[in-house]
Nucleic acid binder design. Structure first.
Lengths: 243, 243
DNA sequence: CCGAGGTTTGCGGGAACCCGCAAAAACACT
DNA sequence: AGTGTTTTTGCGGGTTCCCGCAAACCTCGG
């Protein structure tokens, strides 16, 4: 078994290494990487069947690393190991996992026991192991009522990137009114119906457009990492446009 | 010497404890807390002269903890120990540190050697020890040209909370035009002058209002934590208003 | 084939926002 | 007091945004 670990925090890295060595019997190769880019590089340099990824690393998110790894070799078993249950990450992962792939998602706050189980489950038994809390978020996102639809999510992304309505329309190939309509639905899902925003003597307190961003952030639907990545996508699109 | 450590991550907590015991000779009491609220509670329960705080903890940020601790006992020596150099945190700290207080700021990524030095420096020699990188950010924030002034920062906060112009005006006790003027200056500092935003066939690409949030986030001037805290402040103000 | 649910589009009005100009006011520093 | 910087304010016009209404459209399952 050939295992690659990517984790930027020194202590966590050492801890992972120790636990992995203790729990995995047929561990032949174990390599450590300190950030996402390095992980990719290492993955290309040798043969690995199993990977442990921290989300939230400098230079390249765990989600991005997983994406490129699975693109090269979909059979790779990946265990995500993260601090948070941010919806942004979870949405990102479920969107890129190949149908046949084996993966797991476990929180850093979990006791060492659970980590061992997850290691065995994913890398040896080839099961998908997903933390209870994470599972909860995942379900909510899949639910059409509570979570955002893919379209609404796109609108949210564009909104958070600071695009105008017209720019969104152009990017998503819909009419101006189409883009606005999507925003409307987004506002509704986030609880920004006209009646719901508090009113003072100064008039309505919130601007739907900006308030939506605020809510999305505080609910973890989006985070700074995800934004950086989307910013990159946007740049790509803009590059294609001006040709 | 009576030391209180607040840190939510298990591994880091253990590491801190070990290093502290090894480096600090006259260590009489050492207590651990797993989040901000607990830290305050513990601080009230016994006598401490020294504290190590993680920023980014559940329930209460390290910055908030420091604020209440210094309010009770300004002579307390505090060492901040964090993952990032986010401007939001640094700005928060420099705003609340009492003039006479001794404190330090060190990154988790620093080698153990530096941590030892910081412990000695802050708790024994009573010097202020601030990491090089952090220092850099601190300076930039103080600079009138690159960083945001206090007023502009306030405007940014209100903007990110999703307030309307009128609501900002009411909250900050200025005219409507006054609030807008502050926004204007903010846009300028962030590089959103009319000429600077790219234009496609669809017209200007960015909406200044939302783009400002996007930039602030990606530059770390503000983060989700800081926002949550400001959200609280806003709620307080709104409560006072409706009386 | 039809109907239900979701999505897109046009139209139109009212509100909010962006911003240039210019004068007053506040503040710091000498 | 005097000068310079920063901040506030009013005015006004052009733009963008928000959103209700209604019609077209698409897709999926009966």
């Amino acid at each position: 078994m050939h295992l690659l670990i990517a984790e930027d925090d020194k202590l966590h890295r050492a801890f992972l290494e120790k636990v992995a060595r203790n729990t995995l019997a047929d561990l032949n190769v174990l390599t450590m990487a300190e950030d996402g880019a390095e992980a990719i590089q290492e993955f290309d340099a040798a043969e690995y069947d199993s990977v442990i990824l921290d989300l939230q690393m400098p230079r390249m998110t765990g989600v991005e690393v997983a994406k490129t790894i699975w693109a090269k070799k979909p059979s790779t078993k990946i265990l995500f190991w993260s601090n948070y249950t941010e919806e942004a990450y979870i949405r990102g992962i479920t969107k890129i996992v190949p149908s046949a792939a084996v993966y797991g998602y476990i929180l850093k706050s979990a006791p060492a026991e659970q980590l061992k189980l997850a290691l065995q489950g994913v890398f040896v038994a080839e099961q998908c192991v997903i933390d209870r809390e994470v599972r909860g978020v995942q379900q909510r996102a899949g639910d059409r009522l509570l979570g955002l639809s893919e379209l609404e999510y796109e609108a949210l992304v564009d909104l958070c990137l600071g695009l105008t309505d017209k720019a969104m329309a152009a990017r998503r190939n819909v009419s101006l009114r189409g883009a606005q309509s999507r925003l409307q639905h987004l506002y509704q899902k986030l609880g920004l119906d006209k009646g719901d925003i508090p009113v003072g003597e100064w008039g309505p307190t919130y601007n739907s457009r900006t308030r939506a961003i605020s809510l999305a952030l505080s609910q973890g639907i989006l985070n700074a990492d995800a934004l950086r990545k989307e910013e990159e996508n946007l740049r790509v699109w803009m590059g294609r446009q001006q040709k």
